Simulated assay, not measured.
Amino acid sequence: MTVEQAALADANRARLSVVVLTYTRADQVLDTLARLAALPDRIDIVAVDNASTDGTADRIARNFPFVKLVVAPRNLGAAGRNLGVAHVKTEYVAFCDDDTWWSPGALTRAVEVLDAAPRVAVLNACVVVGEHGAADETCERMRDSPLPRDGLPGPALIGFMAGACVFRTEVFRQAGGYEPRLFIGGEETLVSLDVLGAGHEIVYMDELVLHHHPSPLRDSAQRRRLLARNAAWVAWMRLPLAEALRATYDAFRLMRAEPWPRSDVMALLKGVAWAVGRRRVIDERVRQMRELVHEDDARREAQTVDRGPVGSTRAT
């Protein structure tokens, strides 16, 4: 290969990969992969099948032979994304689920932003929901983050959305990816705390658009249990004692309000002991960031009470 050919090959090489996670939603993931493949952005695509039971892997292989297909040995939940990242060879990695897809040009723009902002490790996209494309409520809160921008390309955050973000690949790996024991439900929190604790920044970018057409195949009660359980475990791993106790109390309160299966109760209790063994409390910088966000949340909630009920979701 000549120097000119090598330079051309390097110029045409993708700098960003998209990892798509799916589980037993073959029709939806095929639609998502078709949309990603049609993007003008120069990207590699990795599809992770979380041990689906509906022939998803076979259909992906047959319809998209150019997509790197990774089949998990079992359903790993959010940690299935770790398998995808293990096959990524690019500097940056974007994530989406089988019911989300990136807008044309968004991923090219993400590369430009990350190239120009070495302090930033994670970009969170603007998620637009459904046919009408209304901005996700969480993203609206991210847009109004109370944290100082300090020269960042967008509002600073203390968290991100797992299926709507772009990472520096090496930072994701250094953070250890998603903890398999959390499975799914608030799994981003632990990664976020560790990314911030390593001195990196997480930023919201309104111009990076991700479309989300939510699947109806969801178990809301199970998700609430997993969110409460994982919040308690993460708190014991990383947060001050008062927050760990409060998160555990909240989980027990939900347990009483929505009687949990005995297996979930036992998992919560055993997991607390496991989490304590992995305890490494966040530093003062991250603690102050969280306090600013929580104070802003409290102010917003008080205003909501004064005005009357309006939906709200913590975003940052």
Rank of each mutant, 00 (worst) to 15 (best):
R168S: 05
R168M: 00
R168I: 02
R168E: 07
T169R: 10
T169P: 08
T169Q: 06
E170P: 10
V171F: 00
F172A: 02
F172Q: 08
R173A: 09
R173C: 07
R173M: 01
Q174T: 10
A175P: 04
G177V: 11
G177I: 08
G177Q: 02
G177P: 06
Y178Q: 10
Y178E: 08
Y178A: 08
Y178C: 05
E179I: 10
P180S: 01
P180T: 03
P180Q: 00
P180C: 03
P180D: 03
R181N: 09
R181A: 13
R181M: 13
R181K: 13
L182Y: 02
L182F: 08
L182N: 02
F183R: 14
F183G: 12
I184M: 11
I184H: 13
G185L: 07
G185I: 07
G186K: 02
G186R: 01
E187S: 15
E187F: 06
E187Q: 12
E188Q: 06
E188Y: 11
T189E: 15
V191T: 12
V191C: 11
V191N: 11
V191G: 03
S192F: 08
D194W: 12
D194A: 09
V195K: 01
L196V: 04
L196I: 06
G197M: 00
A198D: 06
A198Q: 07
A198S: 08
A198K: 05
G199R: 01
G199K: 06
G199D: 04
H200S: 07
H200Q: 06
H200M: 09
H200V: 11
H200W: 12
H200Y: 13
E201D: 13
E201R: 13
E201W: 02
E201I: 05
V203H: 00
V203P: 10
Y204A: 09
Y204F: 14
D206H: 09
D206K: 09
E207I: 02
E207V: 07
L208A: 00
L208K: 03
L208H: 01
V209C: 04
V209P: 06
V209M: 02
V209I: 07
V209D: 03
H212F: 03
H212W: 03
S215G: 10
S215Q: 10
S215W: 04
S215N: 08
S215L: 06
P216G: 01
P216R: 00
L217V: 15
L217D: 15
L217H: 15
L217K: 15
R218E: 14
R218N: 14
D219P: 07
S220A: 15
S220H: 15
A221V: 15
A221S: 14
Q222P: 08
R223C: 11
R224N: 14
R224M: 14
L226C: 13
L227Y: 15
L227G: 06
A228H: 12
A228C: 13
A228K: 12
A228Y: 11
A228I: 04
R229I: 01
N230T: 05
A231C: 10
A231T: 09
A231R: 11
A231K: 08
A232I: 03
A232K: 04
A232G: 14
A232T: 11
A232D: 11
V234Q: 04
V234L: 03
V234I: 06
V234F: 04
